[in-house]
Nucleic acid binder design. Sequence first.
DNA 1: ACCGTCATGTAATCGGTTACATGATTCT
DNA 2: AGAATCATGTAACCGATTACATGACGGT
Lengths: 175, 175
Amino acid sequence: MDHREYTPLQELRLTPASYIVLGLVEWAGTATPYDLKRYAAASVGNLWSIQHAQLYSEPARLAKAGYLKEKREDGGRRRKTYSITARGRRTLSSWLAEPASETAELRDPGLLKLFFGADPKLIAPQQVEIHERKLAAYERIHAGLAGTDLRGPRLTLEAGIRAQRAQIGFWRDLA
Amino acid sequence: MDHREYTPLQELRLTPASYIVLGLVEWAGTATPYDLKRYAAASVGNLWSIQHAQLYSEPARLAKAGYLKEKREDGGRRRKTYSITARGRRTLSSWLAEPASETAELRDPGLLKLFFGADPKLIAPQQVEIHERKLAAYERIHAGLAGTDLRGPRLTLEAGIRAQRAQIGFWRDLA
DNA sequence: ACCGTCATGTAATCGGTTACATGATTCT
DNA sequence: AGAATCATGTAACCGATTACATGACGGT
């Protein structure tokens, strides 16, 4: 008797990058890797950046596993266009429904230097500058989002704004 | 005529993990991978965590490139012990001296879900809980550091504490 | 025509993670 | 004595980054 179970198309680990792709494709309805690149750069990229090459490999992986549908255009470039499948949609929404258990790390190169004894006077000014620039960018985008129905991105930006303000305060006090 | 330049022992990219190892080894004077694991878990790990397996491979890489000296003990376990070389020290301190240009990303799984439309009511409570726990841990460690000469770690913790407070505020307001 | 930048994609490499393994201690 | 946890290490895999390439298009 054969006890092997039915294996789904492919077993793969879903990483944050996977969910980013799934999320963007669902939002867009249909997208080529290059579209994804532009969407990501203008939105999630601020929170969680992705290399453009991965926006080619990751959708392919997801398609092979049945989360996305892949369609190749016939003409010249033969671009690939992706759309989300029912399975993909289910996976995405159940990910959204369960609370995130993992905690984020700071992973700030500036802080790392500080940890190992870098001179605060030396690095603080640049850090202030960096975070202020980020803050300004966030606020600009946030303003552009007012009145739209993009609630998620708007809220996320607000979190980012608070984070930048906190860091600016920290480095200011140091300098 | 031969134009090849003198090549250093090995060309390798120094990643944050490299500097963490260099920094810890310099601080400790001498350390085995297992030592590094313990040091990291108790200190930098809060800011930038590292898998323990990498604390075996990374020192080996660094040693091959001349940043660390590797010594194998003769007895039973034949453990490897690392210490920093002059080259390693130079590299570390010049890294410390130049300001960090790259900016840190939030990379918070909770925020990522929020971005893609997760229900705030659903995830906010857990996020508050997570960040409060982190905050408490940081404050405990910070208290234990008072009066020591570990300036870098102390300052870093203060940054972490501010960051946690900012996030707690954000998620509280959401809920 | 030429040059630079944007558009679009593939290939190769490697850092980092996960999985696997086994000896030593401590606890019950 | 057996179980559980700590100590210590290697192997394999793979996601992510870097490098490489070429076509289209707008400006000079």
